[in-house]
Amino acid sequence: MFEARLAQGALLKKVVEAIKDLIEDANFDCNSSGFSLQAMDSSHVSLVALSLRADGFEHYRCDRNVSMGMKLASLSKILKCANGDDAITMKSEDNGDTITFMFESPEQERLSEFDLKLMDIDSEHLGIPDNEYDATVKLPAAEFQRIVKDLSTIGDTVEISVTKDAVKFGTTGDIGNANIMCRQNKAADKPDESTEIDINEAVSLTFALRYLNSFAKATPLSTHAVLKLSKELPILVEYHIPEVGRLAFYLAPKIED
């Protein structure tokens, strides 16, 4: 059987809210090392990779590897019934056709159980090469969210250019153009506001803002978003979930003909 208890149930709520508009349904894979998901959006332009480590759960048991297909909209409906401070336990019998979500309030005066029907989903598992990236930018998650939101009011795509000291986000649209530059800033007294750039080679790539805006829904999960870029490769946008795991998004670039 599979059973996992997350004391901070809100994390699971935030993860599902972050991905439910990007992917319709997905297989959640559970094994002894943790709970994970890999899924592409319906246009096969982006890929979501979630991994929650077994040791990030208060209690974790997985007797055999299981893959549980769920419709994200249904999962979201159920998790919306959990309070933000509830602990969430997921349970499923081997070969079961449902997964049970149990919500416990902090004083345990309220216990609720919701069963979600599992689905058979044919999904393609992609091999993600373990690249060394040309540039890594770690910036406050809220700042990244604001940049992609603001630029979306002007254009559809963003050119992200990283140099040694700064990262520049630029867009062009019918009404004009916009550029936002963030300089490296390792403020030791305000670590949550730091912007750090680690670069092997200057890089500049263009991406669809619509997807980056969707990825930014993961902002509540982490203080920082980490962007990893290499020439002519998908961008990796990572949100580290402290002590539990990470939610990562890959987006294929726009390429000149």
């Binding site: 096969h44 598992h125 992609l126 998908p234």
Partner: peptide
């Protein structure tokens, strides 16, 4: 204009 690449062009089936 720039064309949107597919993610499967970069990451093969495993």
């Amino acid at each position: 204009a720039a064309q949107q690449a597919s993610i499967t062009a970069f990451f093969g089936a495993s």
